[in-house]
């Protein structure tokens, strides 16, 4: 689950007045928060009908589209930031979406539930079953989360794909986790850019 505190972390990385694209923007509450607190402009992309209505209610621009189809309607480097919040783990084409993010945006912010969180480890190691928690509430057979990863996995992914990690914060219930974040952190928030980008 993403909290106001997580919004604050993301907002803290975003320059005032920036142009922001939020992929899988849900009900648009993050974009609405950024509009108010950072004076940002931009759009959300969302495929779900109910979320689309919620976005309109929240006063954010939203484009109904399937992220898996790519962002072909969006020109290169047309946004300052592209955000993918709590969506990466449900994407089929992980590599493609991250490379698209860094094509249309100068910088990217990715958040995802840390599969390495210790209760998840315990449930597999001792319980012998796939983890089910407040952050990952699904059973193995009905989960939309097909690409779960740990903080460590994602760092390796970035290194292998020439993606620079500008900043990284691991959160638990709105508080930053500094000790063994891959064990005690629930939510990872990464600030990314293409390697060599200024």
């Amino acid at each position: 689950m993403i909290t106001r505190a997580d919004f604050e972390v993301i907002a803290g990385w975003i320059r005032p007045g920036a142009r922001v694209l939020d992929l899988g923007c849900g009900d648009g509450s993050l974009l609405a928060y950024l509009q108010v607190h950072r004076g940002t402009s931009g759009y959300g992309i969302e495929n779900d009908d109910a979320n689309l209505l919620a976005c309109i209610d929240n006063g954010v621009n939203v484009i109904q589209s399937n992220l898996e189809a790519g962002l072909k309607e969006i020109e290169d480097a047309s946004f300052d930031y592209v955000i993918l919040s709590q969506t990466l783990q449900a994407m089929r084409h992980t590599e493609k979406v991250v490379s698209e993010m860094l094509r249309v945006g100068r910088e990217a912010i990715v958040t995802f539930p840390n599969f390495g969180y210790w209760p998840h480890r315990l449930q597999i190691a001792l319980g012998g079953h796939m983890p089910v928690s407040k952050d990952l509430p699904y059973q193995w057979f009905d989960t939309p989360n097909i690409h779960l990863c740990t903080v460590q996995d994602f760092e390796k992914f970035c290194a292998e794909h020439a993606i620079a990690v500008r900043e990284r914060l691991v959160m638990s219930d709105g508080r930053q986790v500094t000790v063994l974040p891959n064990v005690f952190g629930k939510l990872a928030i990464f600030h990314l850019a293409s390697q060599g980008a200024g």
Partner: peptide
């Protein structure tokens, strides 16, 4: 319709797009 949306995105206009099933 997406051609219209793309043109508006390119020009940084405020636009919401709904594709009704």
């Amino acid at each position: 319709s997406r051609e219209i949306v793309k043109a508006l995105l390119d020009e940084r206009k405020a636009v919401t797009y709904a594709e009704i099933d």
